[in-house]
């Protein structure tokens, strides 16, 4: 499915039933969810990347990506998000999924800061972050090696005015 129409989004915590679908995502060489080398990683290593915070993201009932939201500090309403869609997902899907994730994550709790970061070589991730109205906070250089070169990661955030 590569349509640019907004799909019906749903999600669920990762379970063993999603194993094949998730392993299929990691056959894509740029499925950068917690690794810079997805398609060369063995199964056991991929499964170690998936923790209890990881959710599968479904578009019209089909697994198309992963996300995780983690608390960064007690009482500070500070969270970080990791989000990855498969290569065939158009940019509009990233924006749509991110919008729904924002709504879901502020539905039952206060969020003051939501941080995301993308590797410098992750062109799709960076393009999404820069078009999503996120604040670009800078690059931490030379933190990983990818295809023979050192790269950093770029930090982004959205910050809300505290209301409580």
């Amino acid at each position: 499915m590569t349509t640019t129409e907004t799909p019906r989004w749903s999600s669920r915590p990762y379970s063993d039933a999603d194993r094949d679908a998730v392993l299929a995502l990691y056959t894509e060489p740029d499925f950068y969810f917690r690794t810079g080398d997805p398609d060369t990683r063995p199964e056991w290593e991929i499964l170690e990347l998936i923790d209890e915070d990881t959710h599968v993201l479904l578009a019209d009932g089909e697994v198309v990506g992963l996300y995780a939201v983690e608390s960064e500090a007690n009482n500070a309403c500070h969270y970080s998000m990791q989000l990855r869609l498969r290569a065939s997902a158009p940019p509009a899907w990233w924006q749509s999924a991110f919008g729904e994730l924002l709504r879901a994550n502020t539905w039952r709790r206060e969020v003051v800061r939501l941080a995301l970061r993308f590797d410098e070589f992750d062109y799709r991730g960076l393009a999404f972050a820069r078009s999503a109205g996120l604040r670009e906070e800078g690059t931490l250089g030379a933190v990983t090696v990818h295809e023979g070169r050192r790269h950093g990661y770029v930090s982004f955030a959205r910050i809300w005015e505290p209301i409580s």
Binding site: R8, S10, S11, L57, E100, R103, A104, R108
Partner: peptide, 11 residues
């Protein structure tokens, strides 16, 4: 009762 505007990605 079910809330009609419950976000689809909210648990």
């Amino acid at each position: 009762l079910p809330l009609a505007d419950w976000p689809p990605l909210a648990a």
